[in-house]
Design a binder for these strands. Sequence first.
DNA 1: CAGCATCCCTTAAGATACTG
DNA 2: CAGTATCTTAAGGGATGCTG
Lengths: 125, 125
Amino acid sequence: MMETREKTLTSDTCKEKLRAVQDTLDVLGGKWKIAIISALSFGKLRFMELQREVEGIGAKMLSKELRELEINGLISRHVCNTKPITVEYELSVYGKTLQNIINEMINWGINHRERIKEQCHEQST
Amino acid sequence: MMETREKTLTSDTCKEKLRAVQDTLDVLGGKWKIAIISALSFGKLRFMELQREVEGIGAKMLSKELRELEINGLISRHVCNTKPITVEYELSVYGKTLQNIINEMINWGINHRERIKEQCHEQST
DNA sequence: CAGCATCCCTTAAGATACTG
DNA sequence: CAGTATCTTAAGGGATGCTG
C-alpha cells in the first residue's frame, strides 16, 4: 500500500494521488462548501436554516456556494409550493458519497479539540 | 450512530459535529494547506520540491502556509547544513493523523474522475 | 422566504526584485 | 536555495435594498 518511503515523491502513483486530492479540492473549494455539505449531511434544510447552521455565512455567499454545489451535482434544490415560497436543499445521492470525508473531518476535529485542551492543562502546571 | 433523520438538524449532537468540522477547517483552511499536506504525506520535501509538487502555488503563499502549518504543529521544519542552505519539511506525528482525511479525498477524487468520464460517454451516444 | 443587484471595503494572492 | 519585501490586481465577502 505505502510506497518505499523517501524519494518516491515524484513517482507516478503519488502524482496521481495528488491530482485526485486536487480534483476533490476543486469541487469542495471555497470557504464554505464543506461546512454546507456537513450541515446537509444531517438532513434537508431550507435556505434560512442553512444560513443559521453555517455560522458566519452571508446570504450572498450561501446562495453562490449552493449554486455551485448544485451544478456539480452534489445537492438538489426543491422549491416548495408554500405561501411565501421556501426552498429545500439536500444532499444528492452523489453528494452523500462525501460522507466519508466529512466523517473523518468530524473525527479529527473532535480529537484536535481534545489535544488543544490537554496542551492547556500541561501549560497550567 | 445516525440520528433519527429529519428535524434533528439543530440537535446538540449535530451541532457538535458541525463544530468539529469547523475546527478542522480552521486548521486546514486556505487554498493550499491540504494540497501541501498531501504532498508531504509521501515523504519529506524541500521548499522547491514542494513548490513543484503543489501545482500553481507561489513562493510567498507556500512560505506563508508552511509557517501556519508549523505553528499548528502539523509539520516540522529542518534547516540542513548544506552549502546553499536547504530546508526540509515533513509531516509531524500529529500531522500524520490527517492521513485518513487525505486518503478519503484521494478516493473520492479518483471516483469523481471516473464519474465525469462516464458522463462524457453517455453524452456522446 | 429566497435570492439577485449594487456598492464598497478587505483580504488573497500573483509578479518582481532582493538578501543571507 | 529559501525565503522576504514591496507593489498591484483580483477575488472574497459584508451591507443594504429590492422583487416574486
